[in-house]
Design a protein around this nucleic acid. Structure first.
Length: 794
RNA sequence: GGGCCUGUGGUCUAGUGGUUUAUGACGUCGCCUUUACACGGCGGAGGUCGGAGGUUCGAUUCCUCCCAGGCCCACCA
């Protein structure tokens, strides 16, 4: 038999199995089947390059759960989408195609993006297939396609009708270098050197006393609209209601109090300039201060700055400091380091500018948002804190307009004559206001319209994923699938994706979009988050190439839900070893087992004991999976397979397999066949390829389901039980271990023939498995006395 | 600054609804050419369960504080 040695070739097997699943449509969703539906709001990965290891990690984890549910008999609705609109895609295309969006006509850039996606998406999606994600890839959406445009725009119209969206002048983050509005995710912290300038303002109360204010941005003096101190700061209490004169520019601003002021910082008095920073804007809103724009979109000073107008921000800053010093208006200068927001791409400090923007009104719903969060079942439960924390800290309505190019347009025009907003009709969706026109004249009679050029925030669309997916099917099925059963996702986007989806669903449909939330963690390397800039990225494609998808998934299954995991190649290697071992164990069993297995008349004691242990594993694994704790199922099954099944049981049955009577063989083969099948099934959600391959090779001809992934999840074996079964099995294994220890101690082969001496009680307890014990220890005979191993022939 | 999570042999990790030899993997050392598997088997060594205090007959496990690491949010005049 040695010469016929086969090896497990994961590459070939995984490729074959992938094709088999596709060909046989194993994961195809059929809405007409009567089985209970289990629906999943699959995260659509952002198209910003290749699949990264974090994807491989979190998609494997959700796939464990879904494969388990499938084996529990659910009709699985598990679609797949790609999130391919907005800035990440723009950036990818700019990089890959060597173009710049702002240098091209809009239509042309969009065309380049669309062409690029058409070509690259299949390759991108292939990575998800390669790790064995069991989606129905025919249920597919791309967040830029017409299907998604329509639903996204419809969402806007619905909110418009419900008075939940409004358009208003508001500050936006602006990069003067790239000349574009940017979103929060593109803003990064950067520590820069700066200078605190202590500048003399004048208090206007008859005598012009000095009021010293420290600022890093003296160029914003012309935009100063007020100065603030903290209400509990007694030094300045007496100034309340008085006015202060701004140096150099000589106009007056009110002195006000607000608790957002930091008493410790600078002199404890701060100047508020419109669009200086976030707090400045909050003050502007809170106290309805006037709006002064000191900086243009190009990053130069406006005419508000008088003689400094036209200068770039930094030039103006230098010049103003110079002039202040000349006039003796600077008391001191202090070098500091502080964090500022910069544009991730070019490192330019972000400015705020005023512009008309669309918002979703939701700050009034805080209490409801909290109650929506409570209605979700969070796994792990502590992840709910993130949601609550976010809701409690909300300060702004949701800004949904972006000054970008490759996104879903607002279905809105403005009348050129009267300025009225015209929204599209639902039946006409999707529309592109840059190309299409409203079907009716404006109520003022004009037929001239200005299109809305902004596009919707990508989250505005991705917050509709349950609908994007459900509406791929015929309308009559929608209510069967929505709300969905499961939302799997990583913890970093609870505040974006999850939160926004919950809000939208409640606003549109008056209910939560899903029931359970499954949150996975991140992959780190030596405790650090992976990032391209740090150069500590592990590419899943390479791991797959070296060890295969099962090995990768095996590693993934070793982490608990929600926890970050450190990438460790040795754990992947352990996974690969597991697949090899499974392959070899199966090979051994079916080398000897040729006939069809039937339930034997008599189950031998040793078989019964192991099946009892197997039952325990089934029960624990099932309970764990019900709580989405796949790692416990893996651990338990893996441990059973390796240490009970292979190391001991296989050794214990060998004598019957080779030389047993028919009765002995029947019982042994029955136990072997069903134990192995059970192990394969328990591990099928985690290592789907090798389990499928072995199922096809050895079990398919006798089992009715064409894939292991649609077989029934194992149920406990119906065998008789005795109270001391567990104790008995452990005693037996302990004795075997002790014999091996003795052999090892004496440098003997495990095959060395012995005479085993057991104490009376143990021998009595094990009386019906003594033959097995004799065989496995190669004991010539078992005597009674003090435990001892005597070597024959010594 | 607010919130959350984590801290167990060299490394990664299970676990304890409190007390007897604390789980497994990788590594390491020794042995075993055993008819499924050397991508293997058996065995050995290796841990005062982050620190301090408290509750208790007894704490790795419960409570408080501290330390370290991570993540999210806020701030960054």
């Amino acid at each position: 038999m040695r010469d016929k040695k086969e090896k497990y070739d994961f590459k070939q097997v995984e490729e074959q199995i992938k094709q088999f699943w596709k060909r046989e449509k194993i994961f195809k969703f059929n809405p007409n089947i009567k089985k209970k539906i289990y629906s999943v709001d699959t995260p659509p990965p952002t198209v910003s390059g290749k699949m990264h290891i974090g994807h491989a990690f979190s998609y494997s984890q959700q796939d464990f759960v879904i494969r388990y549910k499938r084996m529990r008999g659910y009709n699985i609705f598990y679609p797949f989408g790609t999130d391919d609109n907005g800035l990440p895609t723009e950036r990818l295309v700019e990089k890959e195609k060597g173009v710049k969006a702002k240098d091209l006509p809009r239509e042309k850039f969009i065309k380049i993006c669309m062409d690029y996606l058409k070509k690259e998406l299949p390759k991108f999606i292939q990575d998800w297939k390669n790790i064995g994600v069991s989606c129905d890839f025919d249920l597919y959406y791309s967040t830029i396609n017409n299907h998604c445009r329509k639903i996204s725009q419809r969402s806007f119209l619905d909110l418009y009708k419900k008075n939940r969206v409004y358009r208003q002048d508001a500050p936006v983050m602006w990069c003067p270098e790239c000349q574009t509005g940017i979103s929060q995710v593109e803003a990064k912290d950067k520590e820069v050197k700066s200078e605190f300038n202590y500048i003399k303002f004048k208090i206007l109360d008859g005598k012009e006393k000095d009021l010293i204010i420290a600022t890093t941005r003296p160029e914003l003096l012309p935009a100063c609209v007020a100065v603030f101190y903290h209400p509990s700061d007694h030094r300045f209490k007496k100034l309340k209601g008085k006015m202060a004169k701004v140096p150099l520019f000589n106009f007056n601003v009110p002195i006000m109090e607000d608790k957002r002021v930091d008493i410790e910082k600078g002199t404890g008095i701060v100047m508020c300039c419109t669009f200086g920073d976030q707090t400045d804007m909050e003050w502007q809103r809170a106290y309805n201060l006037s709006i002064k724009e000191a900086i243009t979109r190009d990053g130069v000073m406006t005419k508000l700055a008088g003689e400094y107008s036209g200068l770039k921000i930094k030039e103006a800053r230098r010049k103003i400091i110079e002039d202040l010093e000349k006039s003796g208006l600077i008391v001191k200068k202090e070098k500091i380091k502080h964090f500022v927001n910069v544009h991730e791409r070019c490192g330019t400090e972000i400015e705020f500018i005023k512009s008309k923007q669309w918002f979703v009104k939701y700050l009034d719903l805080r209490e409801k948002m909290l109650s929506w969060g409570r209605k979700l079942d969070w796994y792990p439960i502590y992840m709910k804190h993130r949601y609550d924390n976010w809701v409690k800290g909300l300060q702004w309505d949701w800004l949904i307009s972006r000054q970008r190019y490759f996104g879903i347009p607002f279905p809105v025009w403005y009348c050129k004559k009267c300025g009225k907003e015209i929204v599209a009709e639902e039946k006409d969706l999707p529309v592109d206001p840059l190309k299409d026109k409203p079907k009716k004249k404006c109520s003022c009679g004009s037929n001239e319209f200005e299109p809305e050029k902004d596009v919707l925030d990508t989250w505005f669309t991705s917050s509709m994923t349950p609908r994007l997916a459900v509406e791929l099917l015929d309308k009559k099925f929608w209510d069967k699938i929505f709300p969905m059963d499961l939302r799997p996702q990583a913890h970093d986007i609870i505040t974006f994706w999850l939160f926004n989806t919950v809000v939208k669903s409640n606003l549109h449909y008056g209910k939560n979009p899903f029931k359970d939330v499954l949150v996975s963690g991140f992959v780190t390397l030596k405790g650090e988050k992976m990032s391209k800039s740090k150069g500590n990225v592990v590419e899943p494609q390479i791991v797959l190439e070296k060890y295969g998808a099962d090995a990768l998934r095996y590693w993934t299954a070793s982490s608990n839900l929600g926890e970050d995991i450190d990438y460790n190649e040795k754990d992947v290697i352990t996974g690969k070893k597991f697949t090899t071992k499974l392959f070899n164990a199966s090979r051994f069993i079916f080398m000897n087992l040729k006939d069809k297995v039937k339930r034997p008349n008599k189950i031998f004691e040793i078989d019964r004991l192991f099946l009892r242990k197997m039952n325990e594993v089934i029960e624990n694994s099932t309970n764990s999976f019900e709580k989405y704790e796949y790692s416990k199922c893996k651990q338990e099954t893996d441990n059973f397979f390796w240490h009970y099944f292979c190391d001991n049981y296989l050794e214990l049955v060998k004598h019957r397999v080779y030389n047993g009577s028919k009765e002995e063989k029947d019982s042994a083969f029955y136990t072997l066949y069903y134990s192995l099948l059970t192990i394969l099934k328990l591990m099928a959600p985690i290592t789907p390829f090798v389990t499928e391959a072995l199922y096809q090779k050895y079990f398919r001809k006798n089992e009715k389901e064409k894939s292991i992934h649609i077989t029934k999840w194992p149920k406990k074996f119906k065998i008789s039980q005795r109270k001391d079964d567990k104790e008995k099995l452990e005693l037996l294994l302990e004795i075997i271990s002790n014999v091996r220890k003795e052999k090892s101690k004496h440098n003997k082969s495990l095959k060395a023939e012995i005479i085993l001496i057991l104490n009376k009680a143990d021998k009595e307890k094990l009386k019906d498995v003594l033959e097995d014990l004799k065989a496995v220890t190669n004991a010539h005979e078992i005597k009674e006395g003090k435990f001892k191993v005597e070597f024959v022939g010594d």
